[in-house]
Amino acid sequence: MSCRNFETVITELARGQMTEAGARENAFAHMESCKSCAMKYADDQALTAGLRAVATKLSAAEASARVEEALVSAFRQRTTTPLSPIAQPSYRTLSGWATLAVAAAAAFLVVSVFGVSRLLFNSSSESSPQNVARTSQPAPVSSPITAPQNPVPSSAEVQSTTAVSSSEPPLEENVPTRFADRSRAQKFNALLNSKTKRSAKDYFADANEREEITTDFLPLTYGGLSQMDGGQIVRVEVPRSALQSFGLPMNVERASGRVKADVLVGNDGVARAIRFVK
């Protein structure tokens, strides 16, 4: 037997797991002629002894009686109400798959809301924008906007914006219309960036009648609003727990409730930012 072959059997030999008598004799014969392999074998044997000592020392270790009590209690609940979720013990948390499934369902729901609202908007704006402007705000509501090409307007453009604004018809008639010119888009962007209460009043008719308090627009994607060349604001309702996701304070007792939010959706269909509305 060569040293290389000995190396392949040394673990089994030291653990006493080598069942072939012939191979074992060959290995011992090799050790008599090779001191290096004999030393390796001695090390492996010492390790085996050490590991067995560790195993022996912990052989009586077991879980505490508390674990058994909890499990028996859970088993009783399970057998009495096999399909009820209430039967799940309180210390259980969602497994990884369940969490993924819930997250996927939530994502699907949000995407569906965006998709449906976009479809609704497109069909209604193509048919009669004026009619849409005079209808009450459905839920979810989409308010189209077009962001500016150049975020820093020139002085001439600012003047133009002012002129357009002064000659604008009342807000109620303008709310859902698409921004046709660049200056108005710049105005919106300025309002958006300033993140004041006024932005809500300007772009939601309802906001004129009932005071709405909004948070800042919180970016949903890398780059946020800077990469947007236009889009819509969609009013949605999201679980109150979403507030926590954005680091906003939330009343835990009302976590199961829903809260209104405006989602800024780009022309590419990607949700860019969100703000919460009270």
Binding site: L58, S59, A60, A61, E62, A63, V67, E68, L71, V72, F75, R76, T79
Partner: peptide, 20 residues
Amino acid sequence: ESAFVALYRRRQSGIYRFAL
């Protein structure tokens, strides 16, 4: 339930030591 307890008592020690 008694079967569950029997299986638990038979296997819990090994599982506990493995995890430990």
